[in-house]
């Protein structure tokens, strides 16, 4: 009963928050600018959670995550602008085409993730860091050269379809599938690799395979998040996806606590909103990244589990009781005996 409640509660809470926000919006306590910030925070949540799969749960180190985001953003934006721009489109098809474009963007990011992950993850060591850093910059400099998609100026006129409801929906899905991933053999293999790669190998885990799976899965989510971002901003340019963006995601991740989904959510949410909330102090844009850099170093030095301590809220945890048959223990005479002794 408690488990049933546990699985229904989070969507219900999210829907309630959604209506609360709508109410505050109608009462003019919140304005559309606030909503915009909240949606950015949601995009960052998706990106940080996906980065956590690679860096936090699998113990690899990707620092070019914005590259996957840009592939998804461009991939999906090309599809929707092409289909919506040229011909008159049945309005009923808008949403299906949008969703399809997000899927394509995600798959594009996943394929590229596979192509760079396979050769790199085969090798022990920290090479993934430098390969992903170079990859992110190569994607960016390539995008800057392609004239049909606006080169360095970027793409404009992307239909604005992403709204708060879609954002909430996708954050929910991301959290759900990421949690399920972590509590499956795929997640267990990832954690085994992170905790002790030699032992994982000795326990029959094909370490390369599971590293690549985690990496591709993360790239896919980042791609979808990029698509949502494109249809929220309505314009995108290659330089928004540079290593500066990737580094920001690292700060969200480690501030929240790597290896904790809750931490990623809080890290991305809080650190996206705070700089905006402090705008009244004047223009902080230049100092924001300096402060982030200091936060990152201080956290690694003094609180490696992150500001929020690496805890996981119950929705993002799966207890073994939730799928153990209720009185299984007592039905099994052998175990029951042990209990009594």
């Amino acid at each position: 009963m408690k488990n049933k409640l546990n699985s229904i509660l989070p969507p219900v809470v999210l829907v309630l928050i959604y209506f609360l926000i709508q109410l505050l919006l109608s009462k003019k306590i919140l304005n559309p600018y606030h909503i915009q910030i909240l949606m950015f925070a949601c995009v960052n949540i998706m990106l940080t959670v996906s980065l956590n799969i690679v860096n936090g749960f699998t113990g690899q180190f990707c620092i070019g995550h914005a590259g996957f985001m840009s592939l998804g953003a461009y991939g999906s934006a090309i599809i929707t602008t092409m289909l919506f721009g040229g011909m008159k489109m049945d309005p009923n098809l808008r949403i299906p085409v949008f969703l399809l474009s997000l899927l394509v963007g995600g798959i594009l990011a996943a394929i590229v993730g596979f192509l760079i992950g396979l050769p790199t993850l085969k090798i022990k060591g920290d090479y993934l860091a430098i390969v992903t850093l170079a990859f992110g910059e190569i994607v960016r400099s390539t995008l800057r050269l392609i004239e049909p998609i606006g080169a360095a100026r970027g793409m404009i006129g992307i239909p604005k379809i992403t709204n708060l409801a879609w954002m909430f929906f996708f954050v929910m899905i991301t959290l759900y599938i990421t949690r399920n991933f972590v509590y499956s053999r795929y997640g267990r293999a990832s954690i085994a690799i992170r905790d002790n790669e030699i032992a994982a190998d000795a326990m029959g885990i094909n370490t390369t395979r599971y590293k690549v799976i985690a990496f591709v899965f993360a790239a896919f989510i980042a791609g979808v998040a990029g698509g949502l971002y494109a249809h929220l901003m309505t314009f995108i340019q290659p330089d928004s996806f540079s290593f500066v963006k990737s580094n920001e995601l690292l700060v969200y991740l480690y501030a929240g606590g790597s290896g904790s989904i809750t931490g990623s959510v809080l890290g991305a949410l809080v650190l996206t909103i705070i700089p905006e909330a402090l705008r009244f102090l004047g223009n902080l844009t230049n100092w924001r990244i300096v402060i982030y850099a200091v936060i990152l170093v201080l956290i690694m030095l003094y609180k490696p589990s992150g500001l929020f301590g690496g805890k996981e809220i119950s929705f993002l945890r799966i207890n073994r009781d939730s799928f153990r048959k209720p009185f299984n223990k007592f039905n099994d005479p052998k175990l029951a005996d042990k209990q009594n002794s």
Binding site: R185, A189, I191, A192, D195, N196, A200, I205, Y210
Partner: peptide, 18 residues
């Protein structure tokens, strides 16, 4: 060489991945 941050039962289950 255990998977030190995972639970005891997960350590065992990890060996079943294949």
């Amino acid at each position: 060489r255990l998977f030190s941050n995972a639970s005891v039962i997960d350590n065992v289950k990890m060996a079943n991945t294949a």
